[in-house]
């Protein structure tokens, strides 16, 4: 069977998705990057290979996420796409009527506005990571709750307390304060979710036309407390579709399928067992002082990037 692979390597989690020629999602994976994107990609490929039958052949690869260039080099991508377009593509296919997309991942949050199935506006968090997955992770740890149980606890609250959410530091100190004066854990957790939803709408979504249907994606959309908080703050129903956490990878796979020309550049499953390393050096050719990155596979330089003038990246095999 011929399939297309989408790889989404984010700051916190790595997602892989496989679609067939009829755009059906066959398989998807979601696991933590653990600060090592190369290893995560290798691990992902290894796991994916175990899960699928032998007759499956990959004939196109798309990568996205903040490590999309690196992932593209490692896997051998036919298409490297930014995460906004990839998510828009994915959600457009699986939830065609969507008008607003809220996506909150490990360290970034974004809003995408669509009209007639076309992206017309978008925004990403600029300077503040409040409300993203990493922050929730850290707070869950502080409260001694496994992040998976966060949702249940938040839903128990009848009277969420108000937690300041202008920025992570203030939210955290405000939360501690609330703990110290005796608020219950449920109320604090629910309050935190509400604060984060407010923060998102006030910062990232400021000035954007939010209209129904609203779709909520990304790792944080797994959190029932956050879903409820968004529904309460927006006063609208918030849909969390199937494949909510791997939508970017699915989008990348769909885009790869649409744009592929000729044979795929996929390096094959053996990538997961090869020795892949990245090193960097500072180019002193001009006052720009770019930090050029070199990728090595089994000791051979396969690609260089991050130079402004193209002195090194132009040497890459096309």
């Amino acid at each position: 069977m011929k399939t297309y692979l989408g790889v989404d390597v984010g700051s916190v989690s790595t997602k892989l998705a496989l679609i067939d020629e009829k755009n059906n999602a066959l398989e998807s994976l979601y696991f933590r990057t653990e600060g090592d994107p190369i290893n995560a990609i290798q691990k992902g490929l290894r796991r994916l290979k175990e899960k699928i039958s032998k007759d499956i052949k990959i004939i196109g690869v798309g990568t996205t996420g903040s490590a999309r260039y690196l992932a593209g080099v490692v896997v051998g991508a036919d298409l490297v796409k930014n995460e906004i377009s990839a998510h828009a593509k994915g959600v457009n296919f699986f939830v065609p009527e969507v008008r607003t997309v809220i996506e909150i991942g490990g360290q970034d949050s974004k809003i995408i506005i669509l009209e007639n199935r076309v992206v017309v506006d978008f925004a990403m968090n600029l300077i503040c990571a409040a409300g993203t997955g990493s922050f929730l992770d850290a707070q869950a740890f502080r409260l001694g709750i496994p992040v998976e149980k966060f949702s249940q606890i938040a839903l128990k609250s009848k009277q969420p307390t108000i937690v300041g959410s202008r920025c992570t530091v203030f939210a955290e100190s405000d939360m501690i304060h609330k703990q110290q004066i005796g608020h219950s854990r449920e109320d604090i957790v629910a309050g935190l979710c509400h604060g984060l939803a407010r923060n998102f709408l006030a910062n990232v979504a400021k000035g954007k036309k939010i209209s129904s249907p609203i779709v909520f994606l990304g790792g944080v959309s797994e959190n029932l407390g956050m879903r409820k908080a968004f529904e309460n703050t927006l006063g609208e129903k918030v849909i969390v579709p199937k494949y909510n956490t791997v939508m970017g990878a699915l989008g990348a796979a769909l885009l790869a399928k649409e744009n592929i020309q000729g044979k795929t550049k996929f390096r094959g499953w053996e990538v997961s067992d090869q020795d892949i390393k990245c090193t960097s050096f500072q180019c002193k050719g001009c006052p720009n002082l770019c930090e050029v990155i070199e990728a090595h596979i089994d000791g051979k330089v396969v690609s260089r990037w991050n130079d402004r003038c193209g002195k090194y990246s132009s040497l890459n095999p096309q």
């Binding site: 796409k81 930014n82 995460e83 377009s85 978008f122 990403m124």
Partner: peptide, 21 residues
């Protein structure tokens, strides 16, 4: 720079799809 690159790429996609439409 990477954050800016992501936004620019998405913006270019946005403009292209609008023009096609």
């Amino acid at each position: 720079e990477v954050g800016m690159q992501t936004r620019l790429e998405a913006f270019v996609d946005l403009m292209k799809s609008k023009q096609q439409l």
